[in-house]
Design a binder for these strands. Structure first.
Lengths: 120, 120
DNA sequence: GTCGTGTTCAACCAGGTGGTTGTACATGGA
DNA sequence: TCCATGTACAACCACCTGGTTGAACACGAC
């Protein structure tokens, strides 16, 4: 699949099990077996989940004897928050602008640049 | 589809076309036909995308004669940002603690085990 | 070397998803 | 009223996904 990273990140976090894995990795690194233990699925299934998280850039695996500790890479979260904040802000500005429109009814509907109307 | 809302939101935004739809709805409301126009897919396919976005709570549809304008509901974004920020913060705190450990640790000490975050 | 543990790979399967086409419904205008 | 437009529903299809089992690989311990 040639999906971009943003798609892979959103897709990876769309699964409750994977979100739970991320939550636990936020506390400490863990091996595949550690991670699989609380779930009612095979280790192989968890290994697949980790592959998805890894290809999204959310986790990395190192090598440590025969173990492969999994580590959370929290920086990728920025990708999502940036995307989300961008459109939320845009939508909020739009509502702000609509308020202004209703209040003043200007004849010019020029789009407002990102930071312009945010502060009031 | 018995998934919780957080799963539905992440899943909805995992598709580039749906993210693009959200981006365009952040600028202004639009009808299904408006939204379908720039894409090389049928109106029905876009209608399906909107159904996904709607069930995630990301958009709502009103009625206006025979049209059904689609409207972005940006509040749902909070669900995601809250989840994301929670675990990012947790991971960052953990690194902070790890920094403290490394600073206080004598040079001949063993490497920190994966369970390092457990102390405290 | 052999054994045990941890991990991954391969093949398979059921169910979901994004797309299609075709049909039907709702509404405003002629 | 009939017609054109906008939308939704149903059936179908190819592909993806999350799960399984079974085998293989990679180490450290003995």
């Amino acid at each position: 699949m040639a999906a971009d990273q943003l798609s892979r990140v959103f897709s990876a976090l769309a699964d409750p099990t994977r979100r739970d894995i991320v939550a636990r990795l936020a506390v400490s690194d863990a091996t595949v077996n550690d991670l699989a233990e609380p779930y009612d699925v095979t280790v192989q299934a968890v290994s697949k989940h980790l592959k998805v998280l890894e290809s999204a850039g959310l986790v990395s695996r190192s090598r440590e004897a025969q173990r492969r500790p999994v580590h959370l890479e929290a920086e990728v979260f920025d990708l999502m928050t940036k995307w989300i904040e961008r459109y939320r802000r845009q939508a909020e500005e739009r509502y702000g602008r609509l308020d202004d429109l209703l209040r003043a009814m200007p004849d010019d509907t020029e789009p407002i640049p990102p930071e312009a109307g945010a502060l009031r």
